[in-house]
């Protein structure tokens, strides 16, 4: 739904831009492709890592580690597992709700979700590429 909206917005601007200045529009598209291609190797690596991780760590295994009674230790484990990689929200939330159903604690899941979307050890190379080492470490 929202994706369709993004497409409509992007293509409206693109047509407007083309109408106003063809040369500039072509330059914009070249730039778009270059930026994408620049980051593609990291994109692909992250996708494979997420795939392997989710296949190995089943909801049962994770909720065993971060169950309702796991307390602070469970939250620590949740933040550690969550930090392994950045997982897009549309994967993270169904996973989180599956974990809740299989017995994970709410507090632990809140930590898990936040770190899942914000902190990613695996995605650090991408961040370092753009921001250098120090800003990356402090963001973590």
């Amino acid at each position: 739904m929202f994706t369709i909206f993004m497409y409509i917005v992007a293509f409206s601007f693109l047509f407007l831009s083309y109408f106003m200045d063809k040369k500039k529009t072509l330059k914009a598209l070249k730039k778009a492709w270059k930026s994408f291609e620049n980051i593609l190797p990291q994109f692909l690596s992250i996708l494979v890592i997420i795939g392997i991780m989710l296949a190995v760590l089943s909801p049962e295994i994770i909720s065993g580690l971060i169950g309702q009674k796991s307390g602070w230790l469970g939250m620590l484990i949740a933040s550690l597992i969550g930090s392994i990689t950045l997982i897009p929200g549309f994967v993270a939330f169904p996973l989180a709700s599956a974990l809740l159903k299989s017995g994970a604690g709410f507090m632990q899941i809140a930590v898990f979700i936040s770190t899942l979307m914000m902190v990613g050890i695996v995605t650090i190379p991408v961040e370092i590429k753009y921001f250098g080492k120090k800003s990356d470490n402090t963001e973590k």
Partner: peptide, 18 residues
Amino acid sequence: DMLSVIPPIFILLGLLDV
């Protein structure tokens, strides 16, 4: 999923830049 979401972002990025 990624390939379906990403194109508009980069198109907008290019337009923003130009």
